[in-house]
């Protein structure tokens, strides 16, 4: 019967670890840093905040290619639309983007090789207004 306290402590520890992992998954980082193909990228912010649903959200993205040894130009695409191409050393520090919904930002070399990909999210300050329907859906009679 002596094992019971240890068992409780073990369960408690596992619970704490799992709850911490869940919390970490729920909060998206405001600054994203990742290493791909030997290059380190940092991107911030990853979430754009606007007032109302259906309103375009504009933000300045801070993109940094650290310790870059990329020889080719890099191009930035937002949901497949090119935002421009630059030599990695001369890439502007801030790039303005407009979002209407969550969109994918992709950085590629000119030869098409994907270096980095990240979803940009949108959040609304005003919640979407909803109304209770007066009649049941599909009510025909």
């Amino acid at each position: 019967m002596g094992y019971k306290p240890q068992l409780y402590i073990l369960i408690l520890c596992i619970s704490i670890v799992f709850s911490a992992r869940t919390d970490a998954q729920q909060n998206k980082p405001m600054v994203l840093q990742t290493t791909l193909h030997g290059q380190t990228f940092s991107l911030s912010p990853t979430t754009c905040v606007t007032n109302k649903n259906d309103e375009t959200c504009q933000m300045d993205l801070h993109i940094v290619l650290e310790d870059s040894s990329i020889k080719e130009n890099v191009c930035i695409f937002l949901s497949g639309t090119s935002l421009g191409c630059w030599f990695s050393q001369t890439m502007p520090e801030f790039i303005s983007v407009k979002l209407l919904r969550a969109q994918q930002l992709v950085i590629k070399e000119e030869n098409g090789k994907t270096l980095f990909s990240q979803t940009l999210f949108i959040k609304y300050i005003e919640p979407i207004k909803k109304r209770r329907r007066i009649n049941n859906p599909w009510s025909i009679f």
Binding site: I128, K129, K130, R131, R132, R133, N136, P137
Partner: peptide, 12 residues
């Protein structure tokens, strides 16, 4: 409610 497709709420 947004995820409940057949609920009685609709967007304004």
């Amino acid at each position: 409610p947004k995820n409940c497709r057949d609920n009685e709420y609709v967007e304004n």
